[in-house]
Design a binder for these strands. Structure first.
Length: 867
RNA sequence: GGAGGCAUAGCUCAGUUGGUUAGAGCGCUUGCUUCACAUGCAAGAGGUCACAGGUUCGAGCCCUGUUGUCUCCACCA
């Protein structure tokens, strides 16, 4: 083994795992399944830190469950990402001077599939570098035949149940992508703008009404002005006609509760074709719907002389003309939220258009119930509130997209009579009039297919063994940003088509921010490429740094320090293993019958860690488990156990050497197994070094063994640790060089136990001689005295002792002991404490007080020795 | 407008159901090339647990309020 940890073995090991098909899961009646569906990354995607975190968490859980005896399936795949991919390809074509229409639908799709073949696998290759143990034999793609069948099946079933309809509604329109968007696909951001106040003159010339608007260009589509029926200011004018400026139309003043009394002027222009609220008002009052913009956001023929102008140019022009007409009352600076397309950032335009919708209320109801009844639990729980809030206020889901890349809507229209048929298979002839049928041009929202992911990937709608065995799945692991897009929709889809919720637990994690806490983004250029980190530090170091310090649902920060620290930990594990291996002489990992105090201590601690880490992992407390392992491996196994064993390993006694080597190997192998889910590569490399051709990833998870719990020896060893620390401490304070061997007198409380522990003292505190005494009278030299629970130590430093310094030190210790006594005394003097606190605690407090008193007494004696 | 998170050492964060003198990593200071590891070892400095109340024998933890900060949802033209 190399002296320094070098993760170059990662690729070899991953290939080994894949070759041996260790990641694959199959229906197995002997075992319970544990299934995780991977959130499918977009085929346009490049691995980023968010993926790395998401993958690390899923892989830790999958590997743990696999070792813990489950048939663990982690099913991977990719998403066709309809809009994102189409945008990318169109951009690419633009560079060649091509447009979608140049290629036509078939030509474009051919190109899109080629693009998918070229780039779609890139993200998958990248995921593999993280060590993800997913079952690649089941890899799915949202547009493969399985998933596409599921989409068509779901659409038709929804339609037959009356849960999908087609109609003219106001939807969010992206004039740049030229498609409808769902509500979830619009992101709002506050922008500086103006609130324009205009005069709309009465048709009879008797004056005017002032309206306020943030979007002057839509005025050309106004079909009314609304006021609140309770508004005294407008009591008499309801029903009167207004002359709509810049047009030859007249529009009525109507009364509607929707209008707020105290905002703006109390009079609102109503544009049903370009505002969701106005659309509703329009329905209530039977108003005309006049679209003034086309699909590209350019003013259309209804805009009169403004036709052909871009919407923002039109805004300026209209304001200018109104000014000239003297109809502008005032212009106030105003901040308001503007909706943007989540893909291309263009300002979204609410537009009335004919689209397909999923009726949400009937779907939301059982989906809410599923979480309320705890069939599904969110971890942490607070995200359930967010989920309920969304589900309870949900509006119908616009699912049609005016794109080509995606699942084409399985609806067919007759060219002659207009008859519509929704069908799983192509319909060429109209069942009504025999005319020619053509398929709907639109495709489905990309999230329509992802909503089916937990069962479409397992072969739905075909009944099969995988679906039967692995569905419903156990756990979904995702960041909080796609709860609405994805998690919620999977829940109602699962209930709808499988009659069962798709998973029982949803583990929500945060996002990875930069070292300053900012979101990583392309525009900020603060993104960190995980692949570069893997090259530099290794995937294990990246995984461990991500796993450390994460808590359910909270964000985490990336920093170079963190990953370096993780890499150093890998180096520590590597070198500890190297040390153990170097000292092996054919020993197996075994626990001898007769154990010494250090063995009993490390075994006790090992079992405590096994118990705790198992509990933590079962609760998905990955950050806590990682911290416990880090501390145990570094601060206990390496710093104390390995160090203590040197006294045996460097002795001449072959039996002692061999005994120590066996236990070291045993504990190390248990550690490797506990660490494996977190850092699979290094643990596999070391394990195979110890056990050629045996893979660690298919070994059993360590089991807590209460027969290896030795409380007395644990206490004894820990107390000797304290003595050693005290000696080192004193040495440092007294400026005694570490190389100088110490001699001292010891007055132990339990002599037999103390004698068992002296070898460690000798080795770890660099002590040459310990003279066990029965009474402090035997100490004649000038000494530094140390008091601990189990032993009093008198260290003759001779000339090196600085009397004043030592007196200071003792005085400080005395102060500490006094403070402790004072606190314990007052606690015990409190009747309520003695009466109400658990007996165990009161007893512990009494014992503590006794110990402190004893210590104080001894310390005072010591101090007196100097006076 | 509504909902939620966070506030603990210089920085990043732990702190499980309330119970020793509140911990770790990084950084800082000091000393060590001790035969697994300088990606290391040892020692040290550093905290009014945001603020104000309350519950309790006991509060970093539970409750109420305040302040700061971040996020999500809704959206009044």
């Amino acid at each position: 083994m190399d002296k320094v940890y070098n993760p170059e073995f990662e690729k070899r090991i991953y290939d080994f795992w894949v070759k041996n098909r260790y990641f694959e899961a199959h229906p197995n009646s002997e075992k319970e399944p544990f299934t995780i569906m991977m959130p499918p990354p977009n085929i346009t995607g490049q691995l980023h830190m968010g993926h790395a975190l998401n993958q690390t968490i899923q892989d830790i859980i999958t590997r743990f469950k696999r070792m813990d005896g489950y048939e663990a399936l982690w099913l991977p795949g990719t998403d066709h990402a309809s809009i994102a991919t189409e945008v990318k390809i169109v951009e690419q074509m633009k560079k060649e001077g091509l447009t979608k229409n140049d290629l036509g639908r078939d030509g474009f799709l051919k190109r899109a599939w080629e693009w998918k073949e070229t780039y779609g696998g890139r993200i998958v290759t990248q995921l593999k570098r993280l060590g993800s143990s997913c079952d690649w034999s089941k890899e799915a793609f949202t547009m493969d035949s399985n998933c596409s069948n599921a989409v068509v099946d779901a659409f038709v079933k929804y339609y037959k149940k009356g849960l999908i309809y087609r109609g003219d509604r106001i939807i969010n329109w992206c004039p740049s992508c030229k498609t409808a968007l769902s509500d979830a696909e619009v992101e709002y951001s506050e922008q500086d703008s103006y609130l324009w106040h205009y005069r709309y003159p009465y048709a009879d010339g008797s004056g005017y009404v002032v309206i306020a608007t943030t979007r002057p260009e839509t005025m050309l589509g106004d079909t009314a002005v609304a006021v609140n029926p309770k508004d005294e200011r407008y009591k008499g004018v309801i029903g009167k006609m207004l002359k709509l400026p810049l047009t030859d139309r007249e529009i009525p003043i109507i009364a509607d509760d929707y209008v707020e009394l105290d905002f703006g002027t109390g009079a609102v222009k109503i544009t049903p074709a370009h505002d969701p609220n106005d659309f509703e008002v329009g329905l209530r009052h039977n108003l005309d719907v006049i679209r003034v913009m086309d699909d590209a956001g350019v003013m259309n023929e209804n805009a009169g002389k403004f036709k052909g102008l871009d919407r923002f140019e039109a805004r300026e022009k209209i304001v200018e003309e109104l000014k000239e007409l003297g109809l502008v009352e005032k212009i106030e600076p105003y901040k308001h939220n503007v909706g943007e397309c989540y893909r291309c950032r263009a300002t979204v335009e609410p537009i009335v258009s004919k689209q397909w919708f999923v009726k949400m209320k009937p779907l939301a109801e059982p989906a809410i119930k599923a979480v309320k009844s705890k069939k599904i639990e969110f971890i942490p729980k607070r995200f359930e509130k967010i989920y309920f809030n969304w589900m309870e206020n949900i509006k119908d889901w616009c699912i049609s997209r005016q794109l080509w890349w995606g699942h084409r809507i399985p609806a067919y229209y007759c060219d002659d009579c207009g008859e519509m048929v929704v069908s799983k298979t192509a319909v060429d002839v109209c069942p009504k009039c025999g005319g020619k049928m053509h398929q709907d041009e639109d495709v489905l929202d990309t999230w329509f297919s992802s909503a089916l992911w937990p069962f479409s990937t397992l072969g739905y709608p075909k009944k099969n063994k995988n679906l039967e065995y692995f569905y419903p799945t156990n756990l979904l692991v995702t960041a909080y940003d796609i709860i609405f897009f994805w998690v919620a929709r999977m829940i109602f889809s699962g209930i709808q088509f499988m009659d069962e919720v798709p998973f029982s637990e949803v583990l929500i994690h945060g996002i990875v921010r930069d070292s300053q806490g900012r979101k990583m983004s392309k525009t900020l250029g603060n993104g960190i490429d995980p692949l570069l980190l893997i090259d530099k530090y290794g995937a294990d170091a990246l995984r461990f740094s991500l796993a450390s310090g994460i808590a359910h649902g909270s964000d985490t920060r990336y920093s170079d320090d963190k990953i370096e620290s993780a890499r150093n930990f890998m180096n520590k594990l590597w070198n500890a293993s190297r040390f153990v291996i170097m000292n092996l002489n054919g020993e197996e990992a075994s626990v001898p019958k007769k154990l010494n105090v250090s063995d009993k201590w490390i075994l006790t601690r090992l079992n405590e860690v096994i118990r705790d880490v198992t509990i933590n992992l079962n609760k998905y407390e990955i950050g806590i488990a990682a911290a416990k392992l880090y501390d145990f491996v570094w601060s206990e196994f390496c710093d104390w156990y390995i160090e203590s064993q040197k006294t045996y390993l460097y002795s001449e006694d072959e039996k002692l050497k061999s005994h120590s080597a066996s236990v070291l190997r045993y504990v190390l192998e248990q550690i490797l197994k506990l660490m494996h889910p977190f850092v699979p590569f290094i643990t596999e490399e070391i394990y195979m070094n110890l056990n050629p051709d045996k893979s660690i990833m298919i070994q059993s998870w360590p089991i807590y063994n209460k027969n290896q719990m030795y409380r007395k020896e644990k206490k004894a060893f820990e107390s000797i640790k304290n003595c050693i620390v005290a000696l080192r401490n004193t040495r440092a304070e007294m400026n005694i060089p570490p190389s100088k061997k110490l001699k001292f007198f010891a007055l132990p409380s339990d002599e037999a136990m103390f004698k068992k522990l002296t070898p460690y003292l000798t080795k770890l505190a660099n002590v040459s001689e310990i003279c066990v005494i029965a009474s402090k009278e035997e100490v004649t030299e000038k000494c530094v005295a140390l008091v601990s629970d189990s032993v009093e130590m008198f260290v003759p430093f001779g000339e090196l002792v600085d009397v004043e310094k030592e007196k200071d030190r003792l005085s400080k210790e005395i102060e500490g002991a006094k403070a402790e006594i004072a606190k314990s005394t007052s606690m015990l003097a409190n009747e309520n404490f003695v009466k109400k606190a658990p007996e165990k605690l009161v007893a512990a407090e009494r014992e503590k007080l006794e110990r402190a008193k004893d210590k104080l007494e001894k310390l005072i004696e010591k101090l007196n020795m100097f006076n």
